[in-house]
Design a protein around this nucleic acid. Structure first.
Length: 707
DNA sequence: AAAAAAG
């Protein structure tokens, strides 16, 4: 027993080498490493509070630590924790075995094997289904994209049917009510909840089990009406709306016969922002001592906080289901991951365009699956800015990324917009989805070929979850991380140990826009396209992105360095004479009061720009000489923009039904009088620092503040 | 000012 425990420990240690003493590493047998169940009879090891590096602790680490400490202190007899080989009793690996062993109703199994076309279970499914059918509480660790949803839906459904066998068949009579809820699944995002509900509806198609979704951003009254009319056995939702309808005395939503509760993406649900709501929700459910229920938690990583909270959530004797190597393959090995350090923030979008164009083209030529990418940003404002700039690239001509369609999604959009973006991106063969982390977890968009992350993700888990949107269902995918040089060093900290390879094949990344330089025609074209397009995006979108970035980069220690880089971005990326204005209050809160180069004031009023003289940063934001480009007072970049003031609708809003819908190939001619909002500065100076990037030949471009 | 999530 102790030997097994030690070997288990060794495999943990090998895989998640952190602060565990190296001497404890040995080579585990492959069979042992494959899958394992850990039964926790006494609900519990306690954990040392010793910090692991970077604050990113997974449960493996915590468990290893606890086990290590326990061994050292000899406080716990080894029998407290028994490790069973999953295959010791002949694991179920095919769905039809569920039928032949009389574990799951034939009708349901047939739906899985015939209608959903599934034969063999994934590791997660094999382990969770068998275990969950027994009704035990489970915490399962599994990467997304491995079918874990079915892993909990199937046993939930079977356990519902077990109690009410007539639900196993389709019936003409529906006796369900809104007070008939047997199982609740909680998800951290609305789209994921809808996705789970959709899968549950497929699974229950041939039964009388009713599935409903309850998420925010939708009409509560309408959702309730549906539930009251159709009834509900399995409810999938997000915390806020679930709390809302369960605490509404007049809604009639009750779960006196609740038999299962699932927390999907449990690490997210149990973190600081969500936990009070989850906790509150559990108090709205019947007392588990009177109405016994099974709780299941699914999580790709299991951080410290989760371990602590698990003990109050799961029953003693819960099972820890963990799949190790095979399920790691999608993210860690199947997805080739590249990183590109761009010279400054102003190089990020040009680099993104170069990458997207190159991949679109090569894929067209080689006949591979078409380019379908999710591009992640660290804030909603950056999603808006980047999607606007890249969308505007079309400008009445053929868009350089055609035939790809563009979509964007984040939580500050309306729910109908979000839903449409997710649905349309799912259904489109070649597309680019600009996204915040709403879609980072659990979302299943088929055939995503590229996950591109612009800017350093907030933490390691976020990086891994985003990467998990590609390389799904046995298909290939690649990850790209495009960051600015100032944060490049942090990759080694935040993303340590991940198989990310520096990539220097993107020419645009290393161009120095602050100085005159010769660039190749292809780079010149890209810079020109992005520069002009940025010019057409309204000022508010940009200044919001600037603020959002500052909020996001609070971890960055060298504030002056950061502001210099940010201001270089606004100057050379957008052609702004001065960076966006920030209120004194905000400047203080961000700890920037002693930093040069801050524009203190209000965007709409006169603001005083502190020039930062003597620091060698941005000594001045004088308008550059007109050597590179046309600077007519009213025109800007070689075109007469409609300068109607006031915000125009974002490019993603004026389409009625997604995609371009007449976008790229006709439509957005900038001279067509549609209105592009006002020029950035209102100074009539367009074209990003007055430079012009030629497409014909190598040309001078750019102009530094220093020469 | 910084994902997400109720209105």
């Amino acid at each position: 027993m102790l030997g097994a425990s030690r070997r288990c420990l060794a495999s943990f240690t090998r895989k998640f080498s952190t602060s565990i003493p190296a001497t404890r590493t040995s080579h585990p047998s492959p069979a042992l490493e494959r899958t394992r169940l850990i039964t926790n009879r006494n609900a519990g090891f306690t954990l040392s509070s010793r910090k692991l590096h970077n604050g990113s602790r997974s449960w493996q680490n915590a468990a290893v630590e606890a086990e290590y400490r326990d061994e050292v202190n000899a406080q716990r007899p080894p029998s407290d924790q028994s490790i069973n080989e999953a295959n010791s009793g002949g694991p179920i690996t095919r769905f039809d075995e569920l039928s032949s062993r009389r574990l799951v109703h034939d009708n349901v199994v047939r739906t899985v094997t015939e209608e959903m076309g599934l034969k063999t279970m994934t590791d997660v499914q094999s382990l969770t289904i068998e275990e969950a059918l027994k009704g035990t509480d489970i915490i399962a660790q599994a990467k997304t994209g491995t079918g874990k949803t079915l892993g909990f839906l199937l046993p939930i459904l079977q356990n519902i049917i077990k109690v009410d066998p007539e639900l196993a068949q389709r019936s003409r009579y529906n006796r369900s009510t809104a007070a008939d809820i047997r199982a609740v699944v909680i998800s951290p995002t609305r789209e994921l909840a809808e996705q789970i509900a959709a899968e549950a509806r497929r699974l229950t198609r041939n039964t009388s089990v009713i599935v409903q979704a309850a998420v925010g951003g939708t009409q509560k009254s309408q959702g309730l009406r549906t539930m009251q009319m159709q009834g509900c056995h399995l409810l999938v939702g997000t915390p806020g709306r679930l709390n809302d309808i369960f605490s509404d005395r007049y809604a009639g939503v009750e779960a006196p016969k609740l038999s299962a509760l699932v927390l999907d993406e449990a690490d997210r649900l149990l973190d600081a922002g969500f936990w009070p709501e989850i906790n509150n929700f559990q108090r709205l459910l019947p007392d588990p001592s009177e109405q016994p229920r099974q709780t299941m938690m699914f999580s790709a990583t299991v951080p410290r906080e989760v371990v602590d909270l698990v003990q109050g959530t799961l029953k003693p004797g819960f099972k820890y289901v963990k799949t190790v190597s095979e399920d790691d393959v999608p993210t860690v090995e199947r997805v080739v991951q590249h990183s590109v350090a761009a010279r400054g923030f102003e190089n990020l979008l040009p680099t993104l365009l170069e990458l997207a164009e190159r991949e679109t083209k090569t894929r067209n030529e080689t006949g591979e699956r078409p380019f379908k990418a999710i591009v992640y940003f660290g804030s909603t404002a950056e999603v808006d800015l980047a999607s606007s700039i890249l969308y505007e690239l079309g400008d009445g001509r053929q868009h350089p990324l055609a035939p790809a369609k563009f979509f964007s999604i984040h939580a500050k959009k309306t729910q109908p917009q979000r839903t449409a973006a997710a649905d349309q991106f799912r259904a489109t063969r070649s597309a680019i989805l600009f996204s915040s982390d709403v879609t980072a977890r659990g979302m299943d968009f088929p055939d995503v070929t590229h996950v591109i992350q612009v800017g350093l993700p907030r933490d390691r888990d976020t990086y891994i979850h985003r990467i998990g949107r590609t390389g799904r269902a046995g298909k290939e995918g690649e990850g790209w991380l495009i960051i600015s040089d100032i944060e490049a060093g942090e990759v080694r900290n935040k993303l340590r140990g991940l198989p990310i390879r520096p990539n220097d094949t993107l020419e645009t990344a290393s161009i120095d826009m602050t100085r005159n330089a010769k660039v190749t025609p292809s780079v010149g074209r890209i810079l020109s396209l992005i520069g002009q397009s940025a010019q057409r995006v309204d000022r508010g979108t940009k200044s919001k992105a600037y603020m959002a970035m500052l909020g996001n980069y609070q971890w960055f220690p060298k504030k002056q360095h950061l502001i210099d880089a940010m201001n270089q971005w606004t100057k050379f990326g957008w052609g702004w004479e001065t960076p966006p204005a920030m209120s004194p209050n905000l400047v203080n809160r961000l700890g920037l009061s002693r930093i040069d180069g801050i524009n203190v004031g209000h965007e709409d009023r006169q603001s005083s720009f502190r020039s930062g003289s003597g620091r060698g940063g941005f000594g001045s934001f004088d308008a550059p000489s007109p050597r590179g480009g046309p600077r007519s007072g009213g025109g800007g970049y070689g075109g007469s923009y409609d300068r109607a003031s006031g915000p125009r609708p974002g490019p993603f809003e004026r389409r009625s039904r997604g995609g371009y819908d007449g976008g790229f190939d006709g439509g957005y001619n900038r001279n067509s009088g549609r209105g592009f909002g006002r020029d950035d500065n209102g100074d009539g100076y367009g074209g990003g620092s007055g430079r012009r990037f030629g497409q014909d030949n190598n040309q001078d471009f750019g102009r530094g503040p220093f020469n």
